[in-house]
Simulated scan of single mutants.
Amino acid sequence: MHGVALGESIAADRLYWFEILRHLLELRRPADAITLTNLAVSGSTTTHALKGLPVLGMHRPDWVLCQFGGNDAQRLGIGGPRVVSAEETTRNFTLLRERAAALGPARWIWLAPPDMDENLIANYPFFRMSQTSWSAKDLAEMARELADRPEPVVDALSVTHPAPEIPLHLDDGGPPHGRRTEGHRPRAGHRPRRTRLMS
């Protein structure tokens, strides 16, 4: 069985969820010959992903785990326009799935984007200087849009909501990545499901 990851930095990170999955499979299912290939690219948006999608035809995976959203939802200025509009992100999700299906019969799993801590983002010096921001509302809307699709969805949003008693996020308010392990624990045991992520 061959699985690949498509996504942005939180999938590309060699200490984050896809590499943790690889390690778990090596520990628990070493005899099953499961191969994982990480095709995620840091900084990528869904628009970038469409251009690079033909690489799936070269790898011919059995499974695709796809996680985008953080870079699409980045805003230019505090409360400014998104890097990729919500409408274009929705369009790109549809095109990614349709074009991937034309390349081969791989089964597809979406991962909703993880939540961010808006307070930490607003107070992080680099983001203040560069006038870069994210909105939890944008990420929640993206998660709802994915939940309405027919493919399985892993809810990576609700398990990463900011909580004072569990410091999941980095100092910049972003997802935990490899530098903070607490944020990986909920997701490592989270099973794919199709559900509405937010009421």
Rank of each mutant, 00 (worst) to 15 (best):
R107N: 10
P81N: 10
A73S: 11
D62L: 15
P61A: 06
T89G: 03
P54G: 06
V83M: 14
R97G: 06
W108P: 06
V55F: 01
Q74I: 08
I78T: 12
G52P: 04
G80C: 14
Q74D: 05
F68C: 06
R97Y: 07
P61E: 02
L96K: 04
E88V: 13
A102Y: 03
E98H: 06
Q74Y: 03
W108G: 05
W110H: 02
L95S: 09
F93S: 02
G79E: 15
I109T: 09
T90W: 13
L95D: 10
A73V: 04
L96C: 04
F93V: 15
V64P: 01
N71T: 08
R107T: 12
S85C: 06
G69N: 03
A86N: 07
V64K: 01
L76S: 09
P61Q: 05
D62Y: 14
V64T: 13
V83H: 10
V84Y: 03
L96T: 04
G70E: 09
G70V: 09
L96D: 00
I109F: 14
G80T: 10
L103W: 00
L95T: 09
D72W: 02
S85H: 09
R82M: 12
L56S: 05
V55S: 05
G80Y: 05
Q67D: 10
G80I: 11
R99F: 07
N71V: 13
A73R: 03
L53P: 06
A100E: 03
T90G: 14
H59L: 10
G80E: 12
H59N: 11
G104Y: 00
P81Q: 08
L65K: 05
C66Q: 08
R91M: 07
P61D: 02
H59G: 07
G80Q: 15
G70L: 13
D72F: 02
G52K: 13
A73F: 07
R82Q: 13
G80H: 10
A102T: 15
L53V: 11
P54L: 04
I109W: 12
P105Q: 08
W110R: 01
Q67H: 15
A101Q: 11
V84N: 03
D72Y: 02
R99T: 07
F93P: 00
P105L: 04
H59V: 14
W110N: 02
D72C: 09
A102K: 14
A100L: 07
V55K: 04
C66S: 12
F93W: 12
T94N: 15
A102D: 11
T89Q: 08
G52L: 10
G52D: 14
L56A: 05
G57H: 01
W63H: 15
V84T: 07
E88P: 00
V83D: 08
P81K: 06
W108T: 04
H59K: 11
G70I: 11
